[in-house]
Design a protein around this nucleic acid. Structure first.
Lengths: 190, 190
DNA sequence: CTTTGTATTGAACGATCGTTCAGTTCGGCG
DNA sequence: CGCCGAACTGAACGATCGTTCAATACAAAG
C-alpha cells in the first residue's frame, strides 16, 4: 500500500517530467501506473494532487543528494560530479537532464495556484541546500570566506539551470564539459 | 491582410509565451485574435503552423536585437543593457522575462516533431548572433583575443537562460543585478 | 448592378480531457 | 466460513480539445 504509493508517485513523476503538467493526460498516467482512474483518484484526489506528490518526491530526492554533497570531504567536487552525472543521461533518459522544477516553471501561468506556490517553495528549499554546500566548502577551505553564501547559492542554482537546459539542446558534449569547468572556476572569482 | 497577419502572429506569440504550447487552447487564441476558427485555420493551417509562425517572429525579433548589439560601439555593454531590460518587465509582462524558446523546450517530448526541429534551428541561429557579438567585442578590444567565440557564445546563451529563468522566480532584484554584473566579469576569465 | 474571388463566420464534428461512481475484488479478523 | 472495510475496476459523464465546412460578408472588376 504505502510502498505502492511511493512507486506510483515515482512513475507519475517520470511522465510529468517528460511531458509537463499540461502535456500529460490522466490517461498517460493510468497507462504508466497500470491503474484505473478510480484507484488513482482515491489515492491522490486529482491531477494536481498527484503532481504535488511527484514534485515533493523530486524535491526530497534532490535535497537529499545535495545534502550528501555538504557532508563530503570536498563539497564542491561532489557537487560538480553530481552535475556532471545529470548530463550523462542518454537516449530514453535525456528528459532527466533538465530540472523537473524549472521545466514546470515554464508553464507558470497555465498552472493551478497550488502548484505555483509549491514550486516556489521547492526552489527556495533547494537554494538553501546550495547555500549549505557553499558554507561547507568555505569550512573546508575550498572557497574564500568573503564569498556571500546567499549570493553564491543563487548563482549556482542559475548555473545548474543553464547547463542542464543547454544539455538538452546541445549535442557537443565537450563544450558542456568546458562550461562545467568554467562554473567551478568562476564560483570563487569576483 | 498581410499586416493583419503579422498582428495576429504577435498576439498568438503572446498567448503561447504565457501558457506554453500544450497549455494554450485554440479558443484562447481565437479570443486573443478576435477571429473565428475558420479564419485562423485558413491563414495558418493548424495550431502547429500558427506556433511555428510565432516562433519565427520571435526568433527574428531577438536576432535583430542581438545584431544591433554587434553594431554598437560597445557590443558587450549593449548586450548587458538588453539583458537588463528583459528583467525589468513587471506585472502583466513578467512572462517576457523567460525566453520563449527555452520555455518551449521544457515541453520538448510533448511537442510535434516539426516544432522540435524548428526550436533547434532557432537556438542555433541565435547562438550565431551571440558569436557575432563576441567577435565584435574582440575587435573593439573589449575582450581578449584568446577567447574562443564559439565557446563564449554557448556560455553567454547559458547565462541568458539562467538569469532570465531565475528572474521569474526571484523577487530579490538586487541579487539579479549582482548576477548580471558577474556574468560580464566572468566572460573574459579563464 | 452584377459578377467573381477572397476572407470571415459560427455551428458542429469526433476525439480526448479530468473526473465520478456503482459494482467488484481482495486480505484480514472473528 | 462469513463478514467488513479498503482497494480497485471500467463504463460513463460533461467539458473542452483541435479542426472542418457550408454559408455569409465583402472588396474589386466588368
Amino acid at each position: 500500500m504505502n510502498y505502492s504509493r511511493q512507486e506510483s508517485v515515482e512513475k507519475a513523476m517520470t511522465v510529468f517530467w517528460q511531458k509537463g503538467y499540461a502535456g500529460t493526460g490522466m490517461r498517460d498516467i493510468q497507462t504508466a501506473l497500470d491503474k484505473r482512474p478510480g484507484s488513482i483518484y482515491a489515492a491522490f484526489g486529482n491531477k494536481e494532487g498527484l503532481y504535488l506528490a511527484a514534485l515533493e518526491a523530486y524535491t526530497e530526492d534532490l535535497a537529499a543528494t545535495l545534502k550528501e554533497c555538504t557532508l563530503a570531504d570536498s563539497p564542491l567536487h561532489a557537487l560538480k560530479s553530481f552535475l556532471h552525472s545529470t548530463l550523462g543521461q542518454t537516449d530514453a533518459l535525456t528528459y532527466k537532464r533538465q530540472c523537473f522544477i524549472f521545466k514546470a516553471q515554464a508553464d507558470w501561468l497555465a498552472l493551478p495556484a497550488g502548484i505555483q506556490s509549491a514550486l516556489r517553495q521547492s526552489l527556495q528549499q533547494l537554494r538553501g541546500r546550495f547555500e549549505d554546500i557553499v558554507k561547507a566548502a568555505q569550512q573546508h577551505g575550498e572557497l574564500a570566506e568573503d564569498i556571500v553564501p546567499e549570493q553564491a547559492a543563487l548563482w549556482l542554482q542559475g548555473q545548474f539551470i543553464a547547463i542542464r537546459t543547454l544539455s538538452t539542446a546541445i549535442e557537443n558534449e565537450s563544450a558542456l564539459e568546458w562550461m562545467l569547468d568554467k562554473v567551478f572556476n568562476d564560483l570563487g572569482k569576483h
